[in-house]
Design a protein around this nucleic acid. Sequence first.
DNA 1: CGGATTTAATTAACGTTGTTCAAAGAATCT
DNA 2: AGATTCTTTGAACAACGTTAATTAAATCCG
Lengths: 211, 211
Amino acid sequence: MARPRLTAEAADGVRADICAAAARLYERDGYDAVTMRAIAAAMDRSQALPYRYFKNKEHIFVALRAMCFDRLTTTMEAVLARGDPPLVTLHTMAHSFITFAEANPAEYRLMFALRQPPPAEYPELHAARQRALATLQTAYQQAVDQGLISGDALTGSHVVWAAMHGLLTLHLAGQLTIGRRLDELVAPMLDTLFGPRRMAAAKAAGRRPQG
Amino acid sequence: MARPRLTAEAADGVRADICAAAARLYERDGYDAVTMRAIAAAMDRSQALPYRYFKNKEHIFVALRAMCFDRLTTTMEAVLARGDPPLVTLHTMAHSFITFAEANPAEYRLMFALRQPPPAEYPELHAARQRALATLQTAYQQAVDQGLISGDALTGSHVVWAAMHGLLTLHLAGQLTIGRRLDELVAPMLDTLFGPRRMAAAKAAGRRPQG
DNA sequence: CGGATTTAATTAACGTTGTTCAAAGAATCT
DNA sequence: AGATTCTTTGAACAACGTTAATTAAATCCG
């Protein structure tokens, strides 16, 4: 025959390199710095190379998004694995969500950009997002099962997700005028979502060493 | 002397025309269709004309954003002017917020875009946004004054604003997987924010013909 | 009325960008 | 070695934001 095709792993490796270069550019110099030419230049390759591995620029950003969601999911699953009392877990999970966003604002902006291709077109990204939400839902379900929260977990976890996300979105867009510390709004938000008295009691009673 | 400068009103008129052309393009063909050349072409002018009236493209979008916030504020103020009981007003205001977003998704996306210049650089836009939030805060304050809600109005109105916004943001980005109707989440969200029992009671007792 | 002058608007151009396509390079089999 | 097939490249295109040089328009003064 002829020259053998790249192994699937090899092709994935190149794709990973492309994503890494794009991520580095994005994190260091912002969205506008992520150009196809710059990505290729960072890899010491020609400007046309990325097009052999991604259909277009948008697909590269979709891949980046999925990677970010995977990272977020990992931290959320770690919280769930600690096995704290449900309300403590929810509280901690919400804070780790906020910590993630504040530590990686550029990534968060990317993940939840308002201008995005319809998720249905990118099942991989959709799955990554669902994994994060499922983790929250599991924690919420445990709280419901123990009678600490009423309502169904699917709806409730969506409400929590949306409320936290709204806070972070406004914060990152500089549209929060109340003070400088986001915490001033996080605490009341969590109180509203989970109830202040129950939270305090759960935290006092539920602290464990590790898990 | 020589050719007289354009009147301030005349210049504002041209600026308004530019914004109108940009808005029409944005609404009809999306963000990518809003190019300086297309704006000028829609006005039957040369491609360099917008630069005499706006520093750059970003400033045009800032102006559009401010116009959208003014429209939102108008509808919110109308709700406040009805003079319903505070909890009814808050409830109605939240729904009008959602109605606005669902009726003008493109505008909403524009208003709350994650990638935006720092608000401090555009006091006019900042003021327009503050006006909307102040309206909500006023309604919230009335509820606090009547003992229907605890906590301070500034914090509380921010929490409500953020929660509603989070819901809409995820909805518009297609990241809400629960059912098709946004209402399935709006109702639980409002219940969480304002309390279901008090809400129902207030609505039953407070309905008025017009205000 | 007619040149001088000052502002407005246009034409033309520059540097970049995303993307495509034909040509060149590399790796295998016969 | 030569043919063949995949990979990579170099060059090109159209479109964009933006700026500079040029032309058109409207006033004032004589």
